[in-house]
Write a protein that binds this DNA or RNA. Structure first.
Length: 489
RNA sequence: CGGGGCGUGGCGCAGUCCGGUAGCGCAUCUGCUUUGGGAGCAGAGGGUCGCUGGUUCAAAUCCAGUCGCCCCGACCA
């Protein structure tokens, strides 16, 4: 087991903090609640961005950039939206600092006429602009995404999962009809699901949020919900159907084909650096983080083994061309030729940082014309003849990617169980047994009651499957499908 | 904001009760030996003990004030 990492079984949250620190993904910053994303963490984010950005482009979206600051009055225009975000907004009230005679500290100066809000999300400023850009149905749909940082002044933070400032992408689209906007909302949810499952190897449950859990200002909110290894739920992405709420708040109308003036229909959708936390908590183990091959900048971690300089030369002579061939085949690798460190140290560090596949080669292998490949997740070793390495590695990486997904899915399914009564739900939550599937027909108040009594929240109303008649476990009212309750991050 | 804890070399801690020249582990640097699962030995460098004031011959230690951080809860992507 790795040094300096608390085993998951002993203390899961401490394990998470230890892994993030030891794998050098992120560090606490001098500013409370904010993190520094270190190169290892940022590399994962860059791969996520690439994959998502491609999918956004393929579905017809383009990127733009809107400002960090939003006039306070903008935020006040949509009633629910203000309600939802007012308490966590950072405000800019001054434009400068001045030195005052006899005082050591600088003093704010240049008070702004109207305070500026640091965006907690960009709907308001974007819709203020859309008002100018949309006049006719010919201007629609408008499909824009932006990659940005946002600030939400949360009371309690955790690295990646909830930080005061975080990075994300937010898509904001405008449509001529409700149906088209609804289709867009679901389409993007599908993109998120594909990304989570195919790239992150993280199974998710796509579905609808309840009234109480939806985005402030949305008509309804879809989400993908994942289970972490402590059996808690993590909301991994959201897609909102905003109806005409923002169009009305910002007076964005268009002339339709029948020459009538109508309010525009909207969607917004986003995923954030929280996904890095999700990745760690889905696949990590007591030896460190595990990066799925598709999100690894360097899927292969190459460790040459040698004692004497002439051995090093012989090993490098074989290894370097091999890595060059891999690169030609589109597979990145990191060569760890630091010669002050022992192979054992490198093995441990490589595992800690999550390289999916390790390639070892030493004098013994040269003699046998082979390399040793070790899969990160289970340390399975393979001895592969030199001539087959470039063909074999893509296959091995693929199998690692698949195994990670299957393992995570098996874990989730194992800890998802139907319950028929409120007592059973209560008991399941006391035992931390994971997700429960139950019939539900309660309102927001009922949900709050369940939360205060069991700490569980209605995570998601799944979109596929689970359709059947039944009775709500709390109210006894008829219900047509099961929903997922669980404890959440 | 409520409850709890903590500020001592880069990191993690001991020392505080009972005042007397600041210590340990890891990390770092140098040298030699090592290198297929976190190497060994020898030596070296590095600290206004969070800050301000008080008591005292003498304060990391006692007293008063103050600042900051972490954990638990409420809030949340």
């Amino acid at each position: 087991m790795a040094k300096n990492i608390t085993p998951r079984q002993k203390d899961y949250s401490q394990w998470y903090v230890d892994v993030v620190r030891e794998a050098k993904l992120a560090d606490h910053s001098p500013v409370k609640g904010c993190m520094v994303i270190r190169p290892n963490g940022y590399a994962i984010w860059e791969k996520m961005q690439q994959a998502l950005d491609n999918m956004f482009k393929e579905t017809g979206h383009v990127n733009a950039y809107f400002p960090l600051f939003i006039p306070q009055s903008f935020l006040e225009k949509e009633a629910e939206h203000v309600e939802g975000f007012a308490l966590e907004c950072a405000l800019v009230t001054h434009s400068g600092l001045e030195r005052v005679e006899g005082e050591a500290k600088l003093r704010p100066t240049g008070k702004l006429e109207e305070p500026l809000v640091v965006r907690p999300t960009s709907e308001t400023i974007i819709w203020a602009m859309y008002k100018n850009w949309i006049q006719s149905y010919r201007d629609l749909p408008l499909l824009i995404n932006q990659w940005a940082n946002i600030v939400r002044w949360e009371m309690r933070t955790r690295l990646f999962l909830r930080t005061t400032e975080f990075l994300w992408q937010e898509g904001h689209t405008a449509h001529a009809t409700a149906e088209e906007a609804e289709d867009e909302t679901q389409k993007m949810l599908g993109v998120y699901r594909t990304f989570a499952e195919d790239y992150m190897a993280m199974p998710v449950i796509p579905g609808l949020k309840s009234e109480g859990q939806k985005f402030p200002g949305a008509v309804h909110t879809y989400c993908i919900e994942a289970m972490m290894q402590d059996k808690k739920a993590l909301q991994a992405g959201t897609s909102h159907y905003l109806g005409q709420n923002f169009a009305k708040a910002f007076d964005v109308t268009f002339q339709n084909e029948r020459n009538e003036l109508e309010y525009v229909y909207a969607t917004s959708w986003g995923v954030s650096t929280r996904l890095i936390g999700a990745l760690v908590m889905t696949h990590g183990d007591d030896n460190g983080v595990i990066i799925p091959p598709k999100l690894a900048t360097w899927p292969v971690y190459a460790v040459p083994i040698f004692k004497k300089p002439e051995e090093k030369a012989a090993v490098m002579n074989v290894l370097e061309p091999l890595l060059a061939d891999l690169k030609k085949a589109g597979i990145g690798s990191r060569l760890d030729d630091r010669d002050q460190l022992t192979p054992g140290f490198k093995f441990a560090e490589g595992e800690l940082q999550g390289y999916p596949l390790r390639l070892e080669i030493g004098p013994k292998d040269i003699a046998k014309q082979q390399v040793v490949l070790t899969k990160r997740p289970n340390r399975e070793k393979m001895f592969v003849p030199l001539g087959n390495v470039v063909d074999e590695i893509p296959r091995v990486l693929e199998s690692i990617q698949k195994d990670l997904f299957n393992k995570a899915k098996a874990f989730r399914d194992e800890h998802t169980a139907p319950v028929e009564t409120y007592d059973e739900l209560r008991q399941a939550m006391e035992e931390d047994s994971g997700f429960v599937l139950c019939h539900w027909a309660g309102n927001q108040e009922d949900e709050e009651r369940v939360q205060s009594e069991t700490k569980a929240t209605l995570r998601v109303i799944p979109m596929d499957g689970h359709r059947e008649e039944g009775k709500c476990i709390l109210t006894g009212k008829p219900s047509s499908q099961r929903v997922i309750f669980g404890k959440a991050y």
